[in-house]
């Protein structure tokens, strides 16, 4: 509950955080090397088995929904309006025309977001925040930076809870939180002023506590959590290197002869995102509607 981390027993989970960080770097690099929608789509599909392996399919799909929102927006708006497009592909009502070059551009961008998003989600969901912190420390990142990163995970649920108390406490002072928009904007002060003060006091107190737990002591620090790079990590790293080499080979020698990106592929991916997006809206509306009915009785 404190973070997005999903404690599961899987090969991906047991990888060293550093391997997984390199993996994220590798995916980012690949998404730029493969600046072709078809190849990126293949790459995205190829990442999915890793998600299955990590046993986080459902939470992955939930969090990737939000990225899909960007994809729909980019593909639609860019596809129509981006001025680089010249070759019309198809027309929808109102004379709005999707053009080939713009669609390629938009697809590359959208798929890149999805690919990088997938890798990031995979990393966050399978890596214990403490492990991430200690891995960072092994890479000579300063202790205090790693700690700040880690304690952010810890303090978010606390602030969320405090925010709820402050809201109740202000309502108890006859503050109407369900007023007009202007009223609501005005309410931000009684909400955020106490929250800010309380958070500040908590962090301040914590700094004393850390001092008393020898946090600023010079010299070697040790950690309870062990992160070790093992044979699994090496296999994984080798795999990544292999794929990377293949990508570069493709990019340098094959691009001339490969024409995977067709009008059909672009159109289908555009429609695909629309359909998925449509489902999301329907689901949202139904939920709202149920909420209304539920609230009425």
């Amino acid at each position: 509950m404190n973070s997005l981390y999903m404690p599961k027993d899987s090969l991906i989970h047991s990888l060293d955080p550093r391997t997984k960080m390199l993996f994220v770097v590798f995916v980012v690099a690949s998404s730029f090397i493969l600046n072709d929608p078809a190849l990126q789509l293949v790459f995205l599909v190829a990442l999915f088995p890793l998600v299955v392996m990590a046993k986080v399919v459902k939470p992955y799909l939930i969090s990737i929904q939000f990225l899909l929102l960007f994809a729909v927006l980019i593909m639609t708006v860019h596809g129509i309006y981006n001025p680089i497009g010249v070759t019309p592909v198809f027309e929808i009502f109102g004379g709005l025309t999707f053009k080939y070059e713009s669609m390629v551009y938009a697809s590359v961008m959208s798929f890149r977001i999805l690919v990088i998003g997938t890798a990031a989600v995979l990393f966050v969901m399978t890596t214990h925040p403490s492990d991430m912190a200690s891995a960072l420390v092994k890479w000579k990142v300063p202790h205090s930076f790693a700690f700040i990163l880690l304690s952010t995970f810890q303090i978010i649920p606390i602030i969320a809870r405090e925010a709820k108390i402050v809201m109740e406490a202000q309502q108890a002072r006859c503050l109407d939180v369900k007023g007009s928009l202007i009223q609501r904007v005005k309410n931000l002060v009684p909400m955020f002023a106490p929250l800010f003060i309380i958070t500040f006091m908590k962090v301040h107190q914590l700094s004393y506590v850390l001092e008393c737990r020898a946090f600023s002591r010079k010299g070697e620090k040790t950690s309870l959590r062990e992160t070790k790079i093992g044979s699994l990590d090496y296999t994984f790293l080798l795999g990544m290197l292999g794929v990377l080499a293949f990508e570069i080979y493709l990019k340098l020698f094959m691009m001339g002869s490969l024409h995977l990106t067709t009008d059909a592929l672009l159109t289908y991916s555009l429609f695909g995102t629309w359909i998925v997006f449509g489902f999301m809206i329907i689901k949202f509306v139904v939920k709202q509607f149920q909420g209304k009915i539920g609230g009425a009785n």
Binding site: N2, S3, H128, P129, S130, F147, L150, S151, F153, Q154, K202, Q205, L206, V209, L210, R213, A214, F215, R217, G219, E220, K221, T222, S223, L224, R225, E226
Partner: peptide
């Protein structure tokens, strides 16, 4: 306000880690 770690064992290990106590 005295808690900073994700699990209880890590919370206890935190101070020791700063002192460099072996695992």
């Amino acid at each position: 306000n005295q808690l900073s770690q994700m699990t209880i064992e890590e919370e206890i290990a935190f101070g020791m880690g700063n002192l460099g106590v072996p695992r």
